[in-house]
């Protein structure tokens, strides 16, 4: 197997316990209409014996109602369906402690969000926003969320499905995985710089180059998984590490988008970010008294 692009369901089988995936049921919620959000695969599986919610993309599905949705694109129905799977997970475990809340495994292979006129008239931005807020809520409520990039993790679709996770893993680019906003060829055209120059610059500065390796340097990917049969162990390991952080209460600083900021500084890819945030905090501290209750 030299790539998993377009094979979300195969990847679910490789990551989760054998034959444990039950599609279209999460907690008390069932998704009974097969024509609803077919580009999104949601369901429940076991991972190392424990219940997990799985959310993935289906690259073979075509949404008859919204023809811009195919090849793993996340359309309006798909975004809301994914959000519903997250809310159903929160609801199912709301009485559970952080040690027992089910993990969410995001299997990522999506090239974009629905780019159509109907989508803009009705607000595609709300569907992707809704899913991200749901993931952030689940993460902050104590559910470990691990994203596994198996194929395409492109721009806004990756923001939507992946970047709100506690930890993000990616298959090595030798399996064709793509993580980027735009390929370097397009960036070269837009910023009017020769691709050779950009490639050379990218060696020292990962901010505009495409691929898991560069995202890893920026702290945007926690770990690159070098073999397909290593995915399962890696996901199990990261779910355990994230859960331990949540139980210990250290997840706020070490996982999720904020934790990846710290990782980006540690790996030297995003060195300026923490300086700017610290400067903002220190400048605010000097004037804060003027804005506190009772101040004039």
């Amino acid at each position: 197997m030299d790539t998993l692009i377009g094979q979300g369901r195969t990847a679910i089988g490789l990551i989760c316990d054998p034959d444990s995936f039950v599609e279209n049921t999460v907690g008390a919620k069932s998704f009974d209409d097969p024509s609803f959000g077919p580009g999104a695969v949601v369901g429940t599986a076991k991972l190392d014996g424990k219940t997990v919610t799985v959310i993935a993309n289906d690259a073979d599905a075509f949404n008859e109602k919204f023809p811009v949705v195919y090849a793993g694109i996340i359309g309006m129905e798909e975004g809301y369906k994914m959000a519903q799977a997250v809310y159903a997970s929160i609801e199912a475990d709301k009485a559970e402690s952080k040690a027992n809340k089910r993990a969410l495994v995001l299997v990522v292979d999506t090239p974009g969000n629905g780019p159509g006129k109907v989508e803009e008239i009705f607000g595609m931005n709300k569907a992707t926003g809704a899913y991200q807020l749901a993931l952030a809520e689940a993460r902050l409520a104590g559910h470990p969320i691990v994203a596994m990039v198996i194929g395409r993790a492109i721009s806004g679709a990756f923001l939507c499905h992946g970047l709100q996770a506690d930890h993000i893993l990616s298959l090595d680019s030798k399996f064709g995985t793509m993580i980027h906003v735009m390929p370097l060829t397009s960036i070269s055209r837009i910023v009017k710089k020769d691709i050779e120059i950009l490639e050379k610059l990218a060696e020292g500065n990962p901010v505009f180059a495409a691929g898991p390796r560069f995202f890893s340097k920026l702290g945007g990917v926690e770990e690159i998984v070098t073999e397909i049969d290593g995915m399962r162990d890696a996901v199990i390991r990261h779910v355990a590490a994230v859960r331990a952080a949540k139980v210990a209460g250290t997840d706020g600083e070490t996982t999720g988008p904020w934790g990846r900021g710290a990782l980006g500084a540690e790996r030297a890819g995003r060195a300026v970010r923490p300086e700017v945030i610290a400067l903002l905090q220190s400048e605010l501290a000097q004037v804060a008294s003027r804005y506190l209750p009772g101040a004039n």
């Binding site: 721009s155 970047l163 906003v181 910023v191 901010v207 920026l218 970010r273």
Partner: peptide, 10 residues
């Protein structure tokens, strides 16, 4: 786009 990856993560 000049610093696309950092912008996306932000």
């Amino acid at each position: 786009l000049h610093e696309a990856n950092a912008g996306l993560l932000a």
